[in-house]
């Protein structure tokens, strides 16, 4: 319903300002490009940070050392690094279409890490003792205990990280260093560009499209995962 309302708003905004239906389709495709970046970002962050988070969450001594460090890193405003990253990308000849993923991840990855730590800590000691005593190891331990055990927390982290990444795309898909500007193909760059020119109809269209994506995905994907986590993977 909300999705439909947003779509109508977008179309009205387009209609009232002489933006054609073709432009709406174009912006939707740009949204798809940013969506692909968000998906890659979530997958890579999960692959990197889940093992780290589980190691920290299962080891209280490590947790005491690592948590303040991780909090410090996470509280560092990632966009201060963007111009430096732009310099790096220009020198290395990396397209912002790929580099943008890294920039969006700078802030968003921490949600995956923190929620994984919390999830691992919430696995009861008895379950871990049981797994050790049964000699569950390696992939079997991950498949039977760890992944299902941290799944609810991962979903929470995923929702937050994805939301953060969509927002970050507005500043991460266009970056400059000195006179040079790198631009990625995506909805974030479209909004940033429209904002730079003060083009209200395009701003409204871009923001409405982004909201439609975020809300739509929450409804179609995240809420279902959340319900699954609640019904099957809850550790009482």
């Amino acid at each position: 319903m909300l999705l439909a309302a947003l779509a109508i708003a977008a179309v009205l905004a387009a209609a009232g300002s002489g933006i054609g239906i073709g432009e709406v389709g174009h912006v939707a495709l740009l949204g798809l490009a940013t969506f692909a970046r968000v998906v890659v970002l979530l997958a890579v962050s999960t692959l990197i940070w889940t093992p780290v988070g589980v190691a920290i969450g299962f080891n209280p001594r490590l947790a005491r050392l690592a948590q303040p460090v991780a909090l410090l890193l996470a509280s560092f405003p990632a966009n201060f690094l963007f111009p430096l990253a732009a310099l790096l990308f220009i020198h290395a000849g990396i397209s912002l279409n790929w580099g943008g993923i890294l920039l969006m991840a700078l802030g968003a990855q921490w949600y995956i890490l923190f929620n994984t730590i919390a999830g691992a800590m919430s696995v009861p000691t008895d379950l871990r003792d049981m797994a050790t005593s049964m000699r569950l190891r390696g992939w079997r331990l991950w498949r039977d205990l760890i992944i299902p055990g941290i799944f609810p927390s991962w979903v929470t982290g995923g929702i937050t990280a994805a939301g953060g990444a969509w927002n970050a795309s507005i500043v991460a898909e266009v970056v400059s260093w000195g006179g040079a500007t790198l631009t990625a193909t995506g909805l974030g760059a479209y909004i940033a560009d429209a904002t730079g020119r003060g083009d209200w109809p395009q701003i409204v269209l871009g923001v409405a499209m982004m909201s439609a994506y975020v809300v739509g995905l929450n409804r179609l994907v995240w809420r279902r995962l959340y319900r699954l986590a609640e019904s099957r993977y809850r550790l009482s």
Partner: peptide
């Protein structure tokens, strides 16, 4: 972990997803 041992827990320690 002692391979000769199996344990029964106060909290049952069952995996709810299995």
């Amino acid at each position: 972990p002692n391979p000769d041992v199996a344990m029964v827990f106060q909290s049952f320690a069952l995996l709810p997803w299995l």
